[in-house]
């Protein structure tokens, strides 16, 4: 039996990496990928807890989180494509019209 804290630590590490990635990278696509890392860390937590409690609610939450992630990606990539058409750039520090 793997202790629950192992899962917690794993998800913490992944969350942290995603967090740092968001702060560190300038390519908007990689930033979004880092956000996906964060969401996955969350999902690991939920599933681990769900198994621990023998309670399906956590897995349901993961299901919804997945749905939301998919929706977010659709909107986000649409924004990126529209922006790329307008600006031909997707690095966030190349957006100069508004101060970042």
């Amino acid at each position: 039996m793997v202790p629950i804290s192992y899962y917690l630590i794993l998800s913490g590490i992944v969350f942290l990496i995603g967090f740092v990635g968001v702060l560190l990278r300038r390519n908007i696509i990689i930033i979004l990928l880092s956000v996906e890392l964060m969401l996955n860390a969350t999902n690991i937590n939920f599933v681990a807890f769900s198994q621990y409690f023998h309670d399906v609610a956590g897995q349901v939450f993961v299901f919804f989180a997945l749905t939301v992630a998919a929706a977010e990606v659709a909107v986000g990539l649409a924004i990126i494509i529209a922006l790329y058409r307008a600006k031909s750039a997707i690095n966030i520090d190349e957006f100069q019209l508004l101060k970042w």
Binding site: G18, F19, V22, I28, I31, L32, V35, M38, L39, T42, V68, E72, V75, G76, I79, I80, A82, L83, A86, K87, I92, F95, L97, L98, W100
Partner: peptide
Amino acid sequence: LEAAAKYFVLGAFSSGI
């Protein structure tokens, strides 16, 4: 669009947190 992109990136980030 830039505003949308920024809003989106930070919004997604925050909802992750």
